[in-house]
Simulated scan of single mutants.
Amino acid sequence: MLSIALAPWRGSPVLLRNADVPHVAASTMKVAVLAALYRSGIDLDLPVPVHNDFVSAVGGHYANSPDQDSDPRPWGLLGASAPLRWLAERMITHSSNLATNLCLAQVGVPAVAEVWQRAGATGSSTPRGIEDAPASAVGLLNRVTARDLIRLLESLHAEELAVLEGNVHRVDLAAGLPPGTRTACKNGWIDGVRNSVALVHPEDAAPYTLAVCYTGPLASGDDVVDPAARLLARISSQVWERRGGLMP
Score class of each variant (00 low, 15 high):
A57R: 09
P217S: 13
T181V: 12
A119M: 13
A233G: 15
T28E: 01
G129T: 13
W116M: 14
L102W: 05
V107R: 01
R242N: 06
H157N: 11
V225D: 15
E160D: 01
P22V: 02
D191W: 12
L173Y: 08
M29K: 07
S196F: 09
S236V: 03
K186L: 09
V200Q: 10
L140A: 04
G120M: 14
T100M: 07
T28V: 07
A219L: 12
S3A: 15
S65W: 09
V48G: 05
A35W: 00
G79N: 04
E114Q: 10
T215V: 05
L102I: 15
K30A: 04
P227K: 10
T215F: 06
P47H: 09
P72Q: 00
V33S: 02
I150H: 04
A99H: 03
L87G: 08
L152A: 07
V48R: 11
P83M: 03
Q238I: 00
G139C: 01
W240K: 04
V144I: 14
D20V: 06
K30D: 04
K186T: 12
S65Q: 08
I130G: 03
P134W: 14
A198F: 05
A63W: 07
V212R: 04
V239C: 01
W9H: 15
I235L: 13
R194I: 02
L210R: 05
P202F: 07
V168E: 15
A82G: 05
R194E: 06
G108Y: 03
L104F: 14
L177D: 12
V58Y: 06
V144Q: 03
G76M: 10
A99G: 05
A63Q: 12
V21H: 09
G60I: 05
R90S: 10
R17L: 14
K186D: 09
N187E: 08
T122D: 15
P13T: 00
V58D: 04
M91S: 11
W9P: 04
T93I: 13
C103V: 13
P13F: 00
A219D: 06
H157E: 15
V33H: 02
Y38A: 04
V55T: 13
G108I: 06
V193G: 04
V107T: 04
A113L: 13
G192L: 08
L231R: 11
S125F: 15
L37E: 01
Q238C: 03
A229Y: 12
A19R: 03
S81I: 05
P178G: 11
S70C: 06
S237T: 10
E131V: 12
I190N: 14
A135C: 14
I150F: 02
V31A: 14
L246K: 03
E159L: 02
N142E: 10
A206P: 06
P8N: 02
N195A: 05
I92M: 06
R118F: 03
V168Y: 07
A113Q: 15
